[in-house]
Each structure stands twice: as C-alpha cells, then as structure tokens.
C-alpha cells in the first residue's frame, strides 16, 4: 500500500510546525532574557528564579491548585450521586437525562459563565464563592457524564450476584459498584482539574478581577505587560505541575486497580 502512506506526510510536517514548534517556543522564551532576537539568544534561568523569589507568584499558584482541587472534589461529591441516579433510571429516561445534561454544554462557555453574573450580583455573593460556583457549573457536566458512562457499563448481573451471595446494598456498592466506576471518576478528574487550574475567564468574569489565578497571571503577562519571557516561564511551571498531578492520578488509579 505504498500509494496511501504518503498521504500522511503533509500532516506530519504541519503537526511539527503547528504543535511541536510552538511548544518549543514556550521553552525557548522561558529560558531566555527579554528582547532577544532569533539570532542572539541569551540563556537564563532568572525567569524561574523570579517566580519563586517573589511571594506573590507562589501564592497565586497555590491558590489556583487549591481551587482546582476543591472544585474537582465538589464535582465528584455532587456528580457521583447524580450519575448514580441516572444509571438507575429507565433506558428512555436515561437518554433524556443525558440530553438534558449535554444541552447546556453546547452553549458557549463564556455565555454560560456570564449567565451567572446577573444572579450572583443580585445575590451579592462574595467573589470567592462566585468563582467556585462558576467553576463547578462549567465542569460538573463532564464529571457526571464520565461517571455515568462507567456506571452504565457495569454488568447488572454482578450486582445481582453480590446480592445473592449475601451482600447488603451498602456492601454491594462499596465492593462492586464503586471500584468498577473508578475509571470514570479518574477521567472525570482529568476533565475537571486540568481546565480548572488554568481557567482565567471564570475568575475574571465572576471574581470581579479581585480573584487572581495563575491563568490570569499568564494572560496579564502576555496581553497587558508584554513580558512574554516571564509569561512563558509561568506557563511552563504550570504545565509541569499539571503533568505531574496527572501522572500521580493515573498511578493512583493503577494502584487502586491492582489492589482488587
């Protein structure tokens, strides 16, 4: 099939130019001083030193991580029972419930976030609570759908078997349903945590600009200050932390599976 394999080559070039090179550009900018040109690079680690020497930046990073973790936990706590309820519905109602949860996701995220602004202003909610509501609102559907998918894949015979073998409802849930639904929870965590850490428009729209997260810092350094080198360094630090947390999550998932 020599004739077909060449068809993939143009994309390999495109992919290198549009995906790989931009990633390398961030690393390059993060490790060089401001005002360098393509011909004269001056390598430095000062951008990273600056991030950790100032107390503001680590505080913002810590706040973003804390916020993303709390958002993820709230989404699991609210989303799991909801997915469980859905998985127990009649097949027709299940399809309807999935449609009802998917429908708001089709509406532009900015519009959905803006939709809360009026209500939250009216309720005079504080900026921190507003940001949490905005985050949970935007990301909860992903969590529900992931958990629902893994719950609905569970063979109902397993539940019946557990009951026949003398397990009560609680034991069946803890020993059968919950472990089998963990892959859904894990992919839900990925889909919530990742965008929550880096989100910058939710804090901006609902936090009234007073609630700064790491995404806002990156935005400011690129759009307002124009210090792209430092902005790149912040993004790189964030990307590395996210990669590490994803790696840890996957390891935990594997460890949990090996336990069974």
């Amino acid at each position: 099939m020599k004739n077909f394999n060449k068809m993939a080559y143009p994309y390999i070039i495109w992919m290198t130019v549009m995906i790989v090179v931009p990633m390398l550009m961030i690393v390059l900018y993060a490790c060089t001083v401001q005002g360098n040109s393509v011909l004269t690079f001056q390598f430095t680690l000062e951008n990273f030193a600056r991030f950790f020497s100032d107390s503001i930046f680590p505080t913002v990073l810590w706040r973003s991580l804390k916020m993303a973790v709390i958002t993820t936990v709230i989404c699991i706590l609210i989303g799991y029972p909801c997915a469980y309820v859905m998985a127990k519905m009649k097949p027709d109602s299940q399809a309807m419930a999935v449609l009802l949860i998917t429908l708001p996701m089709w509406i532009n995220m900015l519009v959905r976030t803006y939709a809360w602004k009026g209500i939250l202003d009216w309720l005079q909610a504080g900026s921190e609570i507003s940001v949490y509501i905005g985050m949970v609102y935007n990301f909860l559907p992903f969590m529900i759908l992931q958990i629902y998918t893994s719950l609905s894949k569970i063979d109902p015979n397993l539940i019946i078997a557990a009951g026949d073998l003398g397990a009560n409802d609680r034991q069946t849930f803890m020993k059968v349903t919950l472990p089998l639904s963990l892959p859904g929870v894990i992919s839900g965590i990925t889909l919530v945590f990742l965008p929550a850490v880096s989100s910058f428009f939710i804090p901006k729209l609902l936090g009234g600009g007073q609630y700064v997260l790491i995404g806002n810092l990156i935005e400011d350094y690129f759009i307002k200050t124009g210090d792209w080198n430092f902005g790149s360094a912040i993004s790189l630090i964030m990307a590395i932390i996210i990669l590490i947390s994803m790696y840890v999550t996957r390891k935990l998932d594997k460890a949990a599976k090996e336990d069974d």
Partner: peptide, 24 residues
C-alpha cells in the same frame, strides 16, 4: 508518533497551546 503529538494539545491546558501559537 502522530497520536502522541496530537495528544499534546489535549493534555496541555488550552492557554499553553494558545501562547505557543501566539509566540510562533
């Protein structure tokens, strides 16, 4: 190789992909 590279923008926060393209 192509699958792995295609996954990069999906594993990275959107803002990282965005500033990469802007710098590029």
């Amino acid at each position: 190789l192509v699958t792995q590279v295609n996954n990069l923008p999906m594993l990275n926060p959107e803002i990282v992909t965005a500033i990469g393209l802007m710098l590029f």
